[in-house]
Nucleic acid binder design. Structure first.
Lengths: 138, 138
DNA sequence: TATGGATACATGCGTATACATGTTTTATCC
DNA sequence: GGATAAAACATGTATACGCATGTATCCATA
């Protein structure tokens, strides 16, 4: 594991992403798509800017991620008085896909948390929160 | 910060990557390229498979990352008896680029570690090591 | 020694990511 | 009310990432 904070995070991310993506393959969703869809489900109707803030992701990254979900018919744009705003919500197919994928996600999550232990994950997560907070307030 | 191990890691990775990339921009290297170049420098002459193992990255990901460094004239392929093997080493330009970038990387690293504290980073890193080890041995 | 399998890497494809920049719509201010 | 600035999103480009698959080379063995 490298000393570089970024390289270390990227390495762990590569390893972990593969576990989730592999587990979730039958659902037709990658873990990134699942996470985004789940977030939309919680916040809907929600605009792109809100998701960007929540996810600490670039506007252009979100725009294209949303385009994929839209192409697959999992989300749709809802009319909005301010025509600049992309207000979105889940479609019926999106809700179904999310339900179908949830247990696959949960299995992968339980698998990984089981490997290191729940307390260790809670601790790791707290560390990531502090790191993100520090970077965000910089 | 999400409960999902993967989403949490990706979020932190996005935030941290931007700090490094921003700091390193004058060098013409992204942090991912810098990390790879630095690793090659330590291991050279080294083949792609070794780097894959070290970085826990897919073979195809490495192949394309190397292609970029090669296109920029920072690494070159060295003759090898086994013609399947892509044995690589730094070029003169690669060594110079690495030296020039090193202090930019160090400044970003010091910046981030300074934000959370050295002890906190050591702890975080240990957590990431355990996570990676657990996933790798799964 | 011919050949089938294994090894090491390359390529096609699609998503993830972000910078620079463009477009559309709304808000502001004289 | 019109010019201008700001807000919100879209697009061009390039790298990061990995699955499925292809290609070249090497090795083992009949």
């Amino acid at each position: 594991m490298p000393e570089c904070v970024c390289a270390a995070l990227r390495m762990a991310t590569r390893a972990v992403t593969q576990i989730y993506d592999d587990a979730m393959r039958p659902s037709g969703l990658r873990v990134t798509q699942y996470s985004l869809l789940a977030r939309i489900a919680r916040l809907q109707p929600v605009n792109a800017a809100t998701l960007e803030d929540e996810m600490y992701a670039d506007q252009t990254t979100l725009a294209r991620a949303l385009k994929v979900l839209e192409k697959d018919g999992l989300i749709r744009r809802v009319p909005n008085p301010d025509k600049r705003v992309k207000q979105i919500e889940l479609t019926q197919a999106g809700r179904k896909r999310l339900v179908d994928a949830r247990e696959l996600w949960a299995a992968a999550q339980a698998d990984i948390v089981g490997l290191i232990g729940d307390a260790a994950w809670k601790d790791t997560r707290t560390r990531l929160v502090r790191l993100l907070d520090a970077v965000a307030e910089r």
